[in-house]
């Protein structure tokens, strides 16, 4: 134990000194135990500094879990959006404006998308289209749409579900039509065109409901 000494001040009083005694180990141990539990407690309840998380919620995923979900089909439409981005957006664009220079019609303001029954769209996506087609008063004649739906991976049931999802997204997003296209309905429509080979034409589609 080393003792520091200090000189008396002018008054003859001796100023206090301090010894170099070490800190007890248990105090350090206690500090680290408390730090551990403090960090654990913070991790559990603190929401990691996110300003949106208020007690009694604990984290952002926790908040999302308690959000009201009024649309039971949201996941199905989101799946359709993903498929649309992968397969359709190349020509029709993410925004649905199409690519008129290459003969690809838009999906926005399209009477084909706004059409009440989904059968034509299911057929169109399944087998593709060739020949002239009139969209919003303009004739598109130079392009051919491939059989995107048929070329999707999966068996007949999965293909139908995927086509229904794409149709649901397109109808909802560009056509502002409520509801979704049921996979069962898509499967039924596809069963009806089983014998048709090659692309559809606009006249073929007009015959469907």
């Amino acid at each position: 134990m080393k003792t520091e000494t200090s000189q008396p001040t002018g008054t003859g009083e001796i100023e206090p000194t301090v010894t170099m005694t070490a800190i007890p180990v248990w105090l350090m141990a206690l500090l680290f135990v408390l730090l551990f539990f403090g960090a654990w407690y913070f991790d559990l309840y603190g929401g990691w500094f996110d300003a949106r998380v208020y007690a009694p919620y604990r984290s952002v995923p926790d908040l999302a879990r308690y959000q009201p979900n009024s649309d039971p089909d949201a996941n199905f439409v989101a799946f359709g959006k993903k498929l649309y981005s992968e397969n359709c957006a190349v020509c029709h664009m993410e925004t649905g404006v199409g690519n008129p220079a290459n003969g690809c019609p838009p999906l926005i303001d399209s009477e084909w998308v706004h059409h009440e029954a989904p059968d034509r769209m299911i057929m169109l996506i399944s087998r593709g289209l060739t020949g002239p087609i009139t969209v919003n008063g303009k004739v598109y004649n130079t392009g051919t749409m491939l059989a995107v739906g048929d070329s999707l991976p999966g068996d007949e049931k999965e293909k139908s579900a995927k086509i229904a999802a794409i149709a649901s997204y397109v109808r909802r997003h560009f056509g502002e039509l409520p509801g979704v296209v049921k996979p069962d309905h898509a499967e039924a429509v596809r069963a009806g065109i089983k014998d048709h080979s090659g692309y559809f034409t606009a006249e073929d589609l007009m015959k469907a409901p």
């Binding site: 010894t19 005694t21 800190i23």
Partner: peptide, 11 residues
């Protein structure tokens, strides 16, 4: 008496 511990005070 001297102050018990410099290190405790610092702590």
């Amino acid at each position: 008496k001297p102050l018990h511990s410099y290190y405790l005070a610092l702590f």
